[in-house]
């Protein structure tokens, strides 16, 4: 028995030694759950279209989680590409540089809208950013003074909204969606709410704890909240809503109903570009990164009428896509200064 144990231990060590010596031949991707469906489709098609490369492996973890893994360093046990639904932050670039990741190629590949939706059996919502702000802020201005948020139903905020209890499920801070939500909806709403001068910056960013739930998981978790408590309003990506139109009812924002067309034209106010970040140090070491990126940006994938549009991506205009491809091919990198 001891001999068996010894030989197993030796085998395990040899195995492990062998593992680190062998080079990886599959691209490893992680990050945003909004980008995940698109990246997965491209990965699958890439494996099908290029018989000489293996299909990349795509994980999730949110934009923040993906970039954190991305910036862990250079080497085969780190990921090659990070998906993100927001641009990389300066601090993240600094972390990357500290860990030896200097060639960060930013690739923008399309747009996504952010929608507010309720269960299909609920009332119609015609939202303005200020409604959302007043519903979820910790303190709101009443008669020129900041008071603890007194609203319990939507129609107390504005009589045009349904008489429905306020419960909002917003994406957690690990999601890129959260940032867009904060920048495009809450900041605009905060401005429109005309806070008194002494309210301070953080009044725009502090949410009430009793009626706001932060979701750190995927959109399905938000959907589950809506099913458990139908009086909840959830924040979703447009592509997710598109696949679940039978159970969700979408709210209009500033009078515009979200759709592929209104987001693409910029009419619908809450949209954001989608990115992935390529680790330049790994190009040439891990086979297929260059080809994957070019394939992602090709007409048949990210182009208008391409496969990804069918999955809910809002394609970039032709010139913008060509520019994105060119900037990648020219090897332009992000640095903390720009």
């Amino acid at each position: 028995m001891n001999k068996l144990m010894l030989s197993t231990a030796i085998a395990a060590v040899l195995f492990a030694g062998h593992a680190s010596a062998q080079s990886r031949d599959t691209i490893q991707i992680a990050g945003s759950s909004t980008v995940l469906p698109f990246a997965s489709i491209v990965a699958e098609e890439f494996g099908n279209a290029f018989p000489d490369f293996k299909a990349p492996v795509v994980g999730s973890g949110g934009s923040g989680g993906g970039l954190k893994q991305f910036c862990q360093g250079v080497g085969e046990n780190t990921i090659d590409i990070a998906n993100s639904s927001r641009p990389i932050k300066k601090e993240e670039i600094a972390t990357c540089n500290q860990n030896g990741v200097n060639k960060i190629h930013e690739v923008k590949f399309g747009y996504d809208g952010i929608v507010f939706a309720t269960s299909a059996d609920q009332g119609e919502f015609k939202l303005e950013p200020v409604h959302v702000f007043k519903a979820i802020a910790a303190k709101v201005p009443v008669d020129g003074k900041m008071v603890d948020n007194p609203y319990t139903t939507w129609n107390e905020i504005d009589p045009s909204l349904p008489n429905q209890e306020i419960n909002v499920a917003i994406p957690g801070s690990n999601h890129g969606t959260r940032e867009v939500f904060q920048d495009n909806v809450i900041a605009a709403g905060c401005e429109a709410a005309e806070l008194p001068a002494d309210a301070g910056e953080e009044a725009c960013e502090t949410f009430r704890q009793d009626r706001v739930v932060e979701i750190s998981g995927d959109y399905t978790e938000t959907l589950a909240r809506l099913q458990a408590n139908p009086a909840t309003m959830g924040v979703f990506g447009l592509s997710f809503y598109d696949q679940n139109r039978d159970t969700l009812k979408v709210a209009t924002m500033s009078g515009v109903s979200p759709s592929l067309e209104t987001v693409a034209s910029g009419e619908y106010p809450v949209s954001r570009p989608l990115f992935f970040y390529v680790k330049g140090e790994h190009i040439g070491t891990i086979p297929g990164i260059q080809e994957y990126t070019e394939f992602f940006l090709s007409d048949q994938m990210a182009g208008a009428g391409g496969t990804l549009e069918g999955a809910g991506l809002i394609p970039m205009p032709e010139e913008e896509r060509a520019a994105a491809l060119k900037s990648f091919q020219d090897g332009e990198t992000k640095s903390a200064s720009n």
């Binding site: 995940l36 699958e44 795509v58």
Partner: peptide
Amino acid sequence: GMNAFVTTLPTTPLDQ
């Protein structure tokens, strides 16, 4: 990292 989208069959325990 095992909660990943993998479309290829792992041929060895070292494959994703």
